[in-house]
Simulated scan of single mutants.
Amino acid sequence: MDKNQTGIQYMQEGKWEEAAKFFMEAIEENPEDPVSYINFGNVLSAVGDTEKALKFYKKAISLDENAAAAYYSAGNLYYELQQFEEAKDMFETAMKKGLESGDNYFMLGMTLVALEQGKFALPYLQRSAELNEDDAEAFFQYGLCLAQLDLIDEAIKQLEKCVMIDPEHADAYYNLGVAYGFKEHEENALKFFNKALEIQPDHLLAGYGKKLISKTN
Rank of each mutant, 00 (worst) to 15 (best):
L44C: 09
K88Q: 11
K58H: 14
A114I: 04
E28H: 10
K59M: 06
E80L: 15
L115I: 11
D64C: 11
Y37D: 00
S45L: 06
A69E: 08
I38S: 01
Y105I: 02
M95P: 03
L54S: 06
P31R: 02
I61E: 02
S36P: 00
V43D: 01
K52C: 10
Q117G: 02
Y79L: 04
P31C: 06
T50F: 06
E28F: 09
E116I: 12
Q82R: 15
L77V: 13
Q83A: 12
D89H: 14
A87W: 00
S101Y: 09
E32K: 14
S45Q: 08
L115Y: 08
Y79D: 02
L44Q: 10
E28Q: 13
G98K: 09
E116C: 10
K88R: 15
K97G: 08
E65D: 15
K52D: 10
L77P: 01
V43K: 00
S101W: 08
L108A: 10
L108S: 02
L112M: 11
E92N: 14
V35L: 11
I38W: 00
Q82E: 14
N39P: 05
L44K: 11
P34V: 05
I61D: 03
G102Y: 07
D64P: 05
G98D: 11
T111W: 00
Y105N: 09
Y57R: 02
D103V: 04
L112W: 02
A67M: 14
K55H: 12
A60E: 03
K97I: 05
G102L: 08
N104Q: 11
D64K: 15
S62W: 08
T50S: 12
S73E: 08
M107D: 08
Y79A: 04
A68I: 06
I61P: 00
D64G: 14
L81F: 13
I38V: 14
Y78I: 05
Q83W: 08
L115Q: 09
M110N: 09
M90W: 05
A114S: 15
L108T: 01
A53H: 00
Y71C: 03
S45E: 13
A114T: 11
A94D: 05
N104E: 12
V43A: 07
F91K: 00
L77R: 01
E100K: 14
T111V: 10
L77K: 01
V35K: 06
T111F: 05
M90C: 15
V113Y: 03
F84M: 05
